[in-house]
Each structure stands twice: as C-alpha cells, then as structure tokens.
C-alpha cells in the first residue's frame, strides 16, 4: 500500500504500530458468553427438574420421532425412543461435571507441583520438570488410549485421564510465574522480616500468580469438555445408559441419514458451550493483562 492511501484510508498502518486496544474486546460478546454459561450451568444443575422425561426411559414405539417444537418430544427422540431434550440436559450435566472435575484435578496437581518446583529448586524441581518434559513428549490422545486400555472405559476413567493429562500446563506456568514473582521486592521484604516459606508461598506469591492460572483454568475447562466429548465419541468415556454430549454425537452419527436432530442438537450444544467458555477465557486474559503478553 502506498503512503498516500495509508493517510486517507483512516491510517491502518498507524493502528498497526499501536498495542491492541483492550476495551473494545470486553464487550457485548463477553456478556452474552457469560449469560450462555450461566444458563448452561443452571440448566445442568436443574436437569432432573427441567427434563420432561426420564432420559434413560426407552419407548420403542416412539423411536426416531422428529422435533415437534411445541409439544413432546420437543426436539425429537433417539433410536430407541428416548426423549432427546431430556438426554441433552443430562448430557450437558455430565459434560460440565467432567470438565469441572478434570480442571480441579489437573489444576490441583499442576499448581502444587509447579509451586514445589518453583520453590524447592534442585532435585525436586529436576524430577518434576523431567516429568513435564516426558508427558509433553507424548501426544495426549495416546495417553488417553493407554489409560482407557488399562483402566477400562467409563466416567471415572475420563476424569482421571483428563486430570492426569492436563496438569503439565499448570505446573509449567506456576513455576515460571513464581520465578518472576520471587524476584519482586515485596517477597524479599517479607522474607527479611522472617516470614516462613510456606506463608510467603500462600499469602504473597500465590495471589500474584492467580490471575494467570485462572485464565488457564477457564481455557482448559473448554478443552476438557472437547476431550471428554472426543473420548466418549470414541467409546472409551461415558457409557450408556448414562450420556454425555460426545456420546450423543456418536449416536447421532450412526443415524444421521434418517434423524438429523440426533446429530445437530448435541453438536450445536458442544460448540456453543466451548465457544462461550473460550470467549470468557479470552476476555479474562485481556482484562487481567492490558498489554497482553503474547506467547
């Protein structure tokens, strides 16, 4: 582009030299995403109240009914006549619960080990970081396959797999952040007035690295939901008669030629859920860090 057009067309090049603006990104779409998540959480918690039918109750004569929109079955039935809306609500509950527990497990393990590595140094750090290196050198899905092989498929397996699979990111990040924060003067000040290591870690260091970890946890929550859905889709996760969004897509795939509703609704549910989580995570990242450190 020539210099002449650059000055007349609102100077895009001048924009390019400026750091990205923060304010416009934290707007309507963030609020919409938060609302979607709030509704999803509420609906999932109240699934047993809101569901019009028992999600596991098969009524074979009602198999593969299309959506009627106004009366039951509102969004149709599956191949053995179970109410799809009820299954969707309970599937959403499973997916959210697995994602939440997976994040809880991986964040607890990862942050604890990461802080140990950041503080203890020497042998503990070496061992933990070699463990990190090791796990990062194996594609995550292989770990999933091996553990599914060993423990057998199921809901518990999924949570364990996701929990073990995800801790590495938290460990690396909390260790790196601790390295930075430990150099700050207020830590030195606390240490020089005789505050113990554990107290410094919990009262002074942790609050200062929490922002970064919260952003990571939110983004990992979305990834955990995707992974749970993938594992269940492959048949190694949640087993029938329980259901999850991934398992519903698997069923939907088998009947897609004759019952599009079995595929489209759970697929849309996963997509909207993860989209909302990612938008919230991105906005939080911008919010906490105006300059937005880029990796």
């Amino acid at each position: 582009m020539s210099a002449a057009t650059a000055t007349t067309a609102g100077a895009p090049d001048a924009d390019a030299a400026r750091p990205p603006r923060r304010v416009p990104r934290f707007r309507i779409r963030t609020l919409v995403a938060l609302a979607v998540l709030a509704i999803a959480a509420l609906v999932a918690v109240l699934a047993n109240v809101l569901a019009p039918k028992d999600p596991a109750q098969a009524v074979v004569v009602d198999a593969l009914l299309g959506p009627s929109w106004s009366s039951s079955p509102i969004i149709g039935t599956d191949q053995i006549g179970r109410d799809l809306l009820s299954r969707l609500l309970f599937g959403l509950r499973t997916s959210l619960m697995v994602g939440f527990l997976a994040v809880l497990v991986s964040a607890s393990i990862g942050i604890t080990l990461g802080m140990m590595a950041g503080y203890a140094g020497s042998i503990a750090e070496w061992v933990i970081m070699r463990l990190v290196d090791f796990q990062m050198s194996v594609p995550g899905i292989l770990l999933v396959l091996v553990l599914a092989f060993v423990i057998g498929p199921g809901l518990g397996t999924t949570i364990i797999v996701l929990g073990i699979g995800g801790w590495v990111q938290y460990a690396r990040m909390s260790r790196a952040e601790i390295r930075v924060v430990s150099q700050q003067q207020y830590i030195l000040a606390a240490r020089s007035v005789g505050v113990g290591t554990l107290r410094i870690a919990l009262r002074h260091t942790f609050p200062n690295i929490a922002n970064t970890l919260v952003v990571l946890a939110v983004l990992q929550f979305g990834q955990a939901i995707i992974l749970e859905a993938s594992i269940s889709f492959l048949g190694f996760g949640v087993q029938s008669p329980n259901t999850s969004l991934g398992l519903m897509v698997k069923d939907g795939r088998d009947f897609m030629a004759i019952a599009w509703w079995m595929l489209v609704f759970p697929a849309a549910a996963i997509f909207i859920l993860v989209l909302a989580i990612n938008i919230v995570g991105d906005s939080l990242q911008d919010w906490f860090d105006p300059v937005r450190r880029r990796r």
Binding site: A229, G252, L263, V264, F271
Partner: peptide, 11 residues
C-alpha cells in the same frame, strides 16, 4: 477453536 474436530467431521 470452539469446534471439536469430530463434531465438525460428522457434520
């Protein structure tokens, strides 16, 4: 980034 690959594949 919000679309799991298997969901996209099946759709």
């Amino acid at each position: 980034q919000a679309m799991p690959n298997f969901v996209l594949a099946v759709l």
